[in-house]
């Protein structure tokens, strides 16, 4: 993987696209965790791919390619979210403004699970469980304190556990 990243850094566009292609699923889930709307996710991903290519020169360490690209994606997604949420300003906790999952998307497993947790936890859950980032990496990505990430993940997890328990109880009763 690192070889591929070095190829991309040396100007091999094909290597860059292969890296991005391999990240597509994670990019989709992460952008969706913020935007909850496929059209907006499409915009965010398109801008991110082009922006990443143009900014390759700013990537410090090849091994951080994934984190670096994901940060660009998160920023692009938050920018779109801010456009949709005019009341949001720089001092707000942007995560708390992430909308809840639309019922129309509930056919997919990860979206179902997301829907069981408060929307403020969606991005954290996706970064942790779908993208495999560590607590520290998430804290760096989102400019948050590590303890805050831990606490929020714990709460999210408890919410999902409770919701799953409730839904199983309902299905057993019916």
């Amino acid at each position: 993987m690192e070889d591929k990243i070095r190829q991309a850094l040396s100007g091999d566009a094909n290597a860059f696209l292969q890296l991005i292609d391999a990240m597509s699923d994670h990019m989709y889930k992460t952008a969706f965790a913020i935007l909850k709307n496929d059209e907006d996710v499409a915009d965010a991903i398109q801008d991110t791919i082009i922006s990443c290519y143009e900014k390759l020169g700013t990537l410090k360490e090849p091994r951080y390619f994934g984190t670096w690209a994901m940060r660009i994606l998160i920023n692009a997604s938050l920018h779109i979210l801010k456009r949709r949420t005019p009341c949001l300003d720089a001092s707000d906790d942007v995560l708390s403004f992430i909308p809840a999952v639309d019922d129309g998307f509930s056919g997919m497993r990860f979206k179902e699970l997301l829907a069981m947790a408060d929307s403020a936890y969606h991005l954290l859950l996706t970064l942790y469980y779908a993208d495999g980032y560590s607590i520290k990496e998430i804290a760096d990505l989102l400019d948050m304190n590590e303890n805050t990430v831990k606490t929020r993940l714990k709460r999210a997890r408890e919410q999902i556990r409770r919701e799953l328990h409730e839904s199983r109880k309902v299905s057993c009763e019916s």
Binding site: Y28, K29, D38, M108, F110
Partner: peptide, 12 residues
């Protein structure tokens, strides 16, 4: 569950 691969929607 989070790791399950998603088909990208056509617009994406």
């Amino acid at each position: 569950s989070f790791q399950e691969k998603e088909e990208l929607p056509p617009c994406v």
